[in-house]
Design a protein around this nucleic acid. Structure first.
Length: 275
DNA sequence: GCCCTTTCCTGGAAGC
DNA sequence: TGCTTCCAGGAAAGGG
Protein backbone atom coordinates (compact mmCIF):
# COMPACT_ATOMS: atom_id res chain seq x y z
CA UNK A 1 0.00 0.00 0.00
CA UNK A 2 2.11 2.85 -1.21
CA UNK A 3 1.85 6.00 0.91
CA UNK A 4 4.16 9.04 0.88
CA UNK A 5 7.38 7.23 1.95
CA UNK A 6 6.84 4.39 -0.54
CA UNK A 7 6.01 6.72 -3.46
CA UNK A 8 9.04 8.92 -2.66
CA UNK A 9 11.24 5.80 -2.53
CA UNK A 10 10.06 4.80 -6.02
CA UNK A 11 10.81 8.33 -7.28
CA UNK A 12 14.29 8.34 -5.74
CA UNK A 13 14.97 4.99 -7.41
CA UNK A 14 13.62 6.19 -10.78
CA UNK A 15 15.88 9.24 -10.58
CA UNK A 16 18.87 7.07 -9.70
CA UNK A 17 18.55 4.70 -12.66
CA UNK A 18 18.86 7.52 -15.19
CA UNK A 19 15.47 7.85 -16.86
CA UNK A 20 15.85 11.60 -17.31
CA UNK A 21 16.25 12.63 -20.97
CA UNK A 22 15.27 9.22 -22.35
CA UNK A 23 12.46 9.34 -24.90
CA UNK A 24 9.36 7.14 -25.11
CA UNK A 25 9.36 5.26 -28.43
CA UNK A 26 6.05 3.49 -28.02
CA UNK A 27 3.35 2.68 -25.45
CA UNK A 28 1.56 -0.67 -25.06
CA UNK A 29 -1.63 -0.78 -23.00
CA UNK A 30 -2.92 -4.21 -22.01
CA UNK A 31 -5.60 -3.06 -19.51
CA UNK A 32 -7.27 0.03 -20.91
CA UNK A 33 -8.88 1.20 -17.66
CA UNK A 34 -5.41 1.89 -16.25
CA UNK A 35 -5.34 4.96 -18.51
CA UNK A 36 -7.73 7.35 -16.78
CA UNK A 37 -7.22 10.16 -19.31
CA UNK A 38 -7.14 10.68 -22.28
CA UNK A 39 -8.63 7.72 -24.20
CA UNK A 40 -6.24 4.83 -24.87
CA UNK A 41 -5.76 5.56 -28.54
CA UNK A 42 -4.93 9.21 -27.91
CA UNK A 43 -2.67 8.24 -24.97
CA UNK A 44 -0.56 5.98 -27.18
CA UNK A 45 -0.35 8.55 -29.96
CA UNK A 46 0.40 11.56 -27.77
CA UNK A 47 3.04 9.97 -25.53
CA UNK A 48 5.14 8.70 -28.45
CA UNK A 49 8.45 10.54 -28.91
CA UNK A 50 8.01 12.60 -25.74
CA UNK A 51 11.12 12.87 -23.58
CA UNK A 52 11.22 12.44 -19.78
CA UNK A 53 12.41 15.79 -18.39
CA UNK A 54 11.94 15.40 -14.61
CA UNK A 55 10.46 13.03 -12.03
CA UNK A 56 8.80 14.29 -8.85
CA UNK A 57 5.95 13.67 -6.42
CA UNK A 58 2.74 15.35 -5.23
CA UNK A 59 0.90 13.43 -2.54
CA UNK A 60 0.84 9.81 -3.67
CA UNK A 61 1.14 10.76 -7.36
CA UNK A 62 4.36 10.13 -9.32
CA UNK A 63 4.87 13.01 -11.76
CA UNK A 64 6.84 12.45 -14.96
CA UNK A 65 7.34 15.78 -16.65
CA UNK A 66 7.52 15.03 -20.38
CA UNK A 67 8.51 17.35 -23.20
CA UNK A 68 4.86 18.21 -23.99
CA UNK A 69 2.68 16.69 -21.26
CA UNK A 70 2.74 15.51 -17.67
CA UNK A 71 2.33 11.79 -16.99
CA UNK A 72 0.83 11.30 -13.52
CA UNK A 73 0.91 7.79 -12.07
CA UNK A 74 -1.07 6.71 -9.01
CA UNK A 75 -0.03 3.26 -7.72
CA UNK A 76 -3.16 2.92 -5.52
CA UNK A 77 -3.04 -0.48 -3.79
CA UNK A 78 -0.75 -2.76 -5.72
CA UNK A 79 0.85 -0.75 -8.54
CA UNK A 80 4.59 -1.15 -9.11
CA UNK A 81 7.01 0.21 -11.69
CA UNK A 82 9.75 -1.96 -13.13
CA UNK A 83 12.59 -1.31 -15.55
CA UNK A 84 13.25 -4.25 -17.84
CA UNK A 85 14.69 -5.02 -21.24
CA UNK A 86 12.42 -5.69 -24.21
CA UNK A 87 13.46 -9.36 -24.43
CA UNK A 88 12.20 -10.15 -20.92
CA UNK A 89 8.87 -11.96 -21.05
CA UNK A 90 5.85 -9.89 -20.04
CA UNK A 91 4.46 -11.06 -16.71
CA UNK A 92 0.78 -11.43 -15.84
CA UNK A 93 -0.50 -8.11 -14.37
CA UNK A 94 1.93 -5.96 -16.38
CA UNK A 95 -0.76 -3.66 -17.80
CA UNK A 96 1.22 -0.82 -19.40
CA UNK A 97 4.66 -0.97 -21.02
CA UNK A 98 6.62 2.03 -22.34
CA UNK A 99 9.43 1.30 -24.84
CA UNK A 100 12.30 3.72 -24.21
CA UNK A 101 14.88 4.83 -26.77
CA UNK A 102 17.72 3.17 -24.82
CA UNK A 103 16.10 -0.27 -25.33
CA UNK A 104 14.81 -0.46 -21.77
CA UNK A 105 11.12 -0.65 -20.87
CA UNK A 106 9.20 1.03 -18.05
CA UNK A 107 6.54 -1.51 -17.05
CA UNK A 108 3.51 -1.01 -14.80
CA UNK A 109 2.59 -4.09 -12.78
CA UNK A 110 -0.72 -3.88 -10.89
CA UNK A 111 -2.34 -7.03 -9.52
CA UNK A 112 -5.62 -5.44 -8.45
CA UNK A 113 -5.88 -3.03 -11.39
CA UNK A 114 -6.69 0.00 -9.19
CA UNK A 115 -3.66 2.02 -10.35
CA UNK A 116 -4.30 4.92 -12.74
CA UNK A 117 -2.24 6.88 -15.30
CA UNK A 118 -3.15 10.42 -16.40
CA UNK A 119 -1.56 12.13 -19.41
CA UNK A 120 -2.40 15.83 -19.11
CA UNK A 121 -1.18 19.25 -20.31
CA UNK A 122 -1.91 20.81 -16.92
CA UNK A 123 -1.17 18.64 -13.84
CA UNK A 124 -3.51 20.82 -11.76
CA UNK A 125 -6.44 19.16 -13.59
CA UNK A 126 -5.68 16.08 -11.47
CA UNK A 127 -3.73 17.50 -8.51
CA UNK A 128 -5.74 20.69 -8.00
CA UNK A 129 -7.89 19.48 -5.12
CA UNK A 130 -5.09 17.97 -3.05
CA UNK A 131 -4.37 19.15 0.48
CA UNK A 132 -1.01 20.32 1.83
CA UNK A 133 2.19 18.24 1.91
CA UNK A 134 2.76 17.11 5.52
CA UNK A 135 6.55 17.47 5.32
CA UNK A 136 6.53 20.95 3.76
CA UNK A 137 7.71 23.92 5.80
CA UNK A 138 4.31 25.53 5.16
CA UNK A 139 2.57 22.70 7.04
CA UNK A 140 3.02 24.31 10.45
CA UNK A 141 1.51 23.33 13.80
CA UNK A 142 -0.57 26.52 13.81
CA UNK A 143 -1.98 25.73 10.39
CA UNK A 144 -2.81 22.16 11.45
CA UNK A 145 -4.60 23.44 14.58
CA UNK A 146 -6.75 25.68 12.33
CA UNK A 147 -7.45 22.90 9.84
CA UNK A 148 -8.66 20.45 12.51
CA UNK A 149 -10.66 22.95 14.55
CA UNK A 150 -13.24 23.34 11.76
CA UNK A 151 -13.90 19.64 11.26
CA UNK A 152 -16.21 17.44 13.30
CA UNK A 153 -15.32 14.26 11.47
CA UNK A 154 -13.41 11.44 13.21
CA UNK A 155 -9.69 12.12 12.98
CA UNK A 156 -8.71 8.86 11.21
CA UNK A 157 -11.06 9.15 8.20
CA UNK A 158 -10.21 12.86 8.00
CA UNK A 159 -6.48 12.10 7.72
CA UNK A 160 -7.23 9.52 4.99
CA UNK A 161 -8.89 12.28 2.95
CA UNK A 162 -6.27 13.51 0.43
CA UNK A 163 -8.03 16.85 -0.01
CA UNK A 164 -7.39 17.50 3.71
CA UNK A 165 -3.73 16.47 3.81
CA UNK A 166 -1.83 14.32 1.28
CA UNK A 167 0.43 11.30 1.52
CA UNK A 168 -1.05 9.54 4.54
CA UNK A 169 -2.75 6.16 4.34
CA UNK A 170 -3.88 3.41 6.65
CA UNK A 171 -0.45 2.38 7.96
CA UNK A 172 1.10 5.76 8.78
CA UNK A 173 -2.14 7.21 10.21
CA UNK A 174 -2.54 4.34 12.69
CA UNK A 175 1.12 4.73 13.67
CA UNK A 176 0.91 8.53 14.04
CA UNK A 177 -2.23 8.35 16.19
CA UNK A 178 -0.52 5.79 18.44
CA UNK A 179 2.55 8.05 18.88
CA UNK A 180 0.26 11.00 19.67
CA UNK A 181 -1.88 8.86 22.09
CA UNK A 182 -5.09 9.86 20.28
CA UNK A 183 -8.03 7.50 19.76
CA UNK A 184 -8.73 7.19 16.01
CA UNK A 185 -12.47 7.87 16.34
CA UNK A 186 -12.02 11.15 18.25
CA UNK A 187 -13.72 14.07 16.52
CA UNK A 188 -11.07 16.34 14.96
CA UNK A 189 -12.50 19.48 16.58
CA UNK A 190 -12.41 17.86 20.05
CA UNK A 191 -8.59 17.70 20.06
CA UNK A 192 -6.81 20.15 22.35
CA UNK A 193 -3.99 22.32 20.99
CA UNK A 194 -1.40 20.14 22.69
CA UNK A 195 -2.97 16.99 21.21
CA UNK A 196 -2.91 18.52 17.71
CA UNK A 197 0.71 19.50 18.19
CA UNK A 198 1.54 15.95 19.29
CA UNK A 199 -0.25 14.61 16.21
CA UNK A 200 1.64 17.02 13.95
CA UNK A 201 4.95 15.83 15.45
CA UNK A 202 3.87 12.19 15.15
CA UNK A 203 2.82 12.49 11.48
CA UNK A 204 6.17 14.01 10.52
CA UNK A 205 8.04 11.47 12.63
CA UNK A 206 6.40 8.34 11.12
CA UNK A 207 6.75 9.67 7.56
CA UNK A 208 10.44 10.55 8.04
CA UNK A 209 11.07 7.11 9.61
CA UNK A 210 9.28 5.46 6.68
CA UNK A 211 11.38 7.44 4.20
CA UNK A 212 14.60 6.53 6.00
CA UNK A 213 13.64 2.85 5.88
CA UNK A 214 12.68 3.03 2.18
CA UNK A 215 9.02 2.29 2.90
CA UNK A 216 7.00 -0.47 4.52
CA UNK A 217 6.69 -3.95 2.97
CA UNK A 218 4.46 -6.31 4.96
CA UNK A 219 5.06 -10.02 4.42
CA UNK A 220 5.60 -11.33 0.91
CA UNK A 221 3.49 -11.81 -2.18
CA UNK A 222 1.73 -10.11 -5.07
CA UNK A 223 -0.02 -7.38 -3.13
CA UNK A 224 2.87 -5.85 -1.18
CA UNK A 225 5.01 -2.81 -1.81
CA UNK A 226 8.23 -3.29 -3.77
CA UNK A 227 10.25 -0.47 -5.26
CA UNK A 228 12.23 -0.57 -8.52
CA UNK A 229 14.18 -3.82 -9.01
CA UNK A 230 11.88 -5.53 -6.50
CA UNK A 231 13.50 -3.95 -3.44
CA UNK A 232 11.58 -4.31 -0.16
CA UNK A 233 11.03 -1.51 2.35
CA UNK A 234 12.46 -2.06 5.85
CA UNK A 235 9.99 -0.07 7.94
CA UNK A 236 7.92 -3.02 9.21
CA UNK A 237 10.19 -3.40 12.26
CA UNK A 238 9.27 0.17 13.29
CA UNK A 239 5.49 -0.39 13.36
CA UNK A 240 3.84 -0.30 16.78
CA UNK A 241 0.16 -0.94 16.02
CA UNK A 242 -0.55 -1.61 12.33
CA UNK A 243 -1.59 -5.28 11.89
CA UNK A 244 -0.43 -6.05 15.43
CA UNK A 245 -3.89 -6.99 16.75
CA UNK A 246 -3.67 -8.94 20.02
CA UNK A 247 0.00 -8.12 20.59
CA UNK A 248 1.08 -6.16 23.69
CA UNK A 249 1.34 -2.39 23.33
CA UNK A 250 4.99 -1.35 23.04
CA UNK A 251 4.37 1.65 25.32
CA UNK A 252 2.12 0.55 28.19
CA UNK A 253 2.57 -3.26 27.86
CA UNK A 254 -0.64 -3.59 29.96
CA UNK A 255 -2.92 -3.71 26.99
CA UNK A 256 -3.31 -5.59 23.72
CA UNK A 257 -3.56 -3.79 20.38
CA UNK A 258 -7.18 -3.72 19.21
CA UNK A 259 -8.61 -3.68 15.69
CA UNK A 260 -11.80 -1.82 14.80
CA UNK A 261 -13.29 -0.76 11.47
CA UNK A 262 -13.63 2.98 10.79
CA UNK A 263 -14.85 4.19 7.38
CA UNK A 264 -14.46 0.60 6.15
CA UNK A 265 -10.76 0.69 7.03
CA UNK A 266 -8.97 -1.57 9.48
CA UNK A 267 -7.84 0.61 12.35
CA UNK A 268 -5.35 -0.50 14.99
CA UNK A 269 -4.84 1.20 18.36
CA UNK A 270 -4.04 0.70 22.03
CA UNK A 271 -7.27 1.02 24.06
CA UNK A 272 -5.31 2.04 27.15
CA UNK A 273 -2.92 4.72 25.86
CA UNK A 274 -5.06 6.17 23.07
CA UNK A 275 -7.93 8.18 24.49
C1' DG B 1 -19.86 22.10 1.96
C1' DC B 2 -19.51 18.06 4.69
C1' DC B 3 -19.79 13.31 5.49
C1' DC B 4 -20.93 8.53 4.46
C1' DT B 5 -21.55 4.56 1.28
C1' DT B 6 -20.62 2.14 -2.84
C1' DT B 7 -17.71 0.76 -6.48
C1' DC B 8 -13.65 -0.92 -8.71
C1' DC B 9 -10.35 -5.72 -8.55
C1' DT B 10 -7.96 -10.15 -7.30
C1' DG B 11 -4.57 -12.69 -4.12
C1' DG B 12 -4.60 -14.87 -0.12
C1' DA B 13 -6.55 -16.18 4.24
C1' DA B 14 -10.26 -18.40 6.52
C1' DG B 15 -13.92 -21.60 6.70
C1' DC B 16 -15.97 -25.91 5.54
C1' DT C 1 -6.52 -31.67 0.21
C1' DG C 2 -9.52 -28.94 -2.36
C1' DC C 3 -13.20 -25.98 -2.93
C1' DT C 4 -15.81 -21.66 -1.77
C1' DT C 5 -16.34 -17.31 0.52
C1' DC C 6 -14.79 -13.11 2.16
C1' DC C 7 -11.53 -9.46 3.28
C1' DA C 8 -8.02 -5.95 2.21
C1' DG C 9 -7.28 -1.30 0.41
C1' DG C 10 -7.22 4.37 -2.14
C1' DA C 11 -9.94 7.39 -4.26
C1' DA C 12 -13.85 8.85 -7.17
C1' DA C 13 -18.77 9.20 -7.65
C1' DG C 14 -23.16 9.61 -5.89
C1' DG C 15 -26.48 10.46 -2.31
C1' DG C 16 -28.28 12.43 2.12
Amino acid sequence: MPELPEVQTVINDLNEIGLISTAIKRAHVYWERTIATPGCKEFRKRIERQRIMAISRRGKYIILQLSEDFLLIHLRMTGRLHIKTADEERLPHEHVVLDLDDDRQLRFHDTRKFGRWYLVRNPEDVLGKLGPEPLDASFTKTRFVDMLAKRRRAVKPLLLDQSFVVGLGNIYIDEALWHASIHPSRSASSLSNSEVEALHRAIQRVLREGLQNLGTTLGTGQTNFYSIAGRRGKNEAHLNVFRRTGMPCARCADSEIKRIVLSQRSTHYCPKCQI
